[in-house]
């Protein structure tokens, strides 16, 4: 199946102590490891060693890790990335704590991607033997898992092709300048599975982070998350609202270093043979924020 999911997001933060408070006590992630200026976290319903890495110094994204199903997928992706014109390096086991060997490359959008097949199995917080529905003593929002990310690139159409050809992703939704066959792609939402998107790419500067998102189950949990953000003085960017694109329910908010986070629930089941939804500029506001139907200035200009 190739890439199964976004395995980890490695993020820069200006103040590690404040960031730890946010990701552990507001979001409810579990710290699994710390070394030097880095802290590693997993969410309660994740089984691999970590899904979020915080590194002190700066803001924005250091790199993303993508987990593949089979070790042979690494060779396959290496060959396809090389064919696309990207330089691929081998990454050794232990380059990232508790992550196996794999490959590393910089995408046409100037983001660093690592692809790996093995991670230390820690297990979910409810285990696998007669598991309960959720851990009894979740902290804060208590997010179950990392979900997806949105990055910016000067040429989202090129990233659409790159992710299709190299990762075998397909687009579930796109924003394009018109319905013409040769229209420019302004943004694309891509996945390898039934998950509505694993990575989205929006027109903007190279190498930037728009947001990374944690999964929630439904509207009630999204609303409760927003309540907790008020309790913890987390700046809310937008929401709670719905995205027209993906139909997901959302709150955008900022971590203590100004990196945008999201909690995201819903989104319909994606299939590769489902025709791709297409949004054109006159409905972009509704596509991004389904209730206000206005694209705020921050959506396209506020990045880390």
């Amino acid at each position: 199946m190739g890439v199964m999911r976004l395995g980890y997001a490695h993020i820069r933060v200006t103040d590690l102590a404040e960031a730890k408070d946010h990701y552990a006590n507001t979001m409810g992630l579990y710290e699994t490891h710390a070394e030097g200026n880095k802290v590693y976290y997993k969410a309660w319903d994740e089984w691999d060693h970590h899904s979020v890495v915080l590194e002190e110094g700066g803001v924005g994204v250091v790199k993303y890790g993508w987990k593949v199903q089979h070790s042979t997928d690494l060779d396959d992706i290496e060959a396809k990335a090389t064919a696309f014109g990207v330089t691929v390096d081998r990454m050794s086991k232990g380059d990232n704590p508790e992550i196996g060997d794999g490959i590393r490359f910089t995408t046409p959008s100037d983001h660093v991607f690592e692809v790996y097949h093995e991670a230390t199995l820690v297990g979910t917080e409810v285990g696998v033997h007669n598991p309960d529905a959720f851990p009894r003593h979740l902290v804060g929002v208590g997010v179950p898992a990392l979900d997806h990310s949105l990055i910016t690139a000067e040429d989202p159409g090129q990233m659409d092709r790159f992710l299709s050809e190299v990762f075998g992703f397909y687009a579930t939704e796109r924003v394009q300048t018109s319905l013409d066959d040769d229209a420019d792609i302004i943004a694309t939402w891509m996945t390898s599975s039934n998950q509505i998107h694993q990575l989205a790419v929006l027109s903007g500067p190279q190498g930037k982070l728009h947001h990374f998102a944690f999964r929630l189950n439904d509207w009630n949990e999204v609303g409760r998350a927003a309540d907790l953000f008020s309790m913890d003085d987390v700046p809310i960017d937008v929401g709670p609202t719905r995205h027209g694109i993906t139909r997901g329910q959302t709150v955008y908010f900022f971590d203590p270093s100004g990196n945008r986070n999201e909690v995201f629930s819903g989104g319909y089941l994606a299939y590769p043979d489902r025709p791709t939804n297409v949004w054109t500029p006159e409905a972009l506001g509704k596509g991004v924020f389904y209730h206000s139907r206005e694209l705020n200035d921050a959506f396209t200009s506020v990045l880390t």
Partner: peptide
């Protein structure tokens, strides 16, 4: 934008007086 020092959108010019960054 972020109100947390990350996005650089809120820059202005200080013409007189001093300030420090709290983070």
């Amino acid at each position: 934008g972020c109100r947390r020092g990350g996005c650089a959108i809120c820059k202005v010019d200080c013409r007189a007086g001093d300030f420090t960054y709290c983070r």
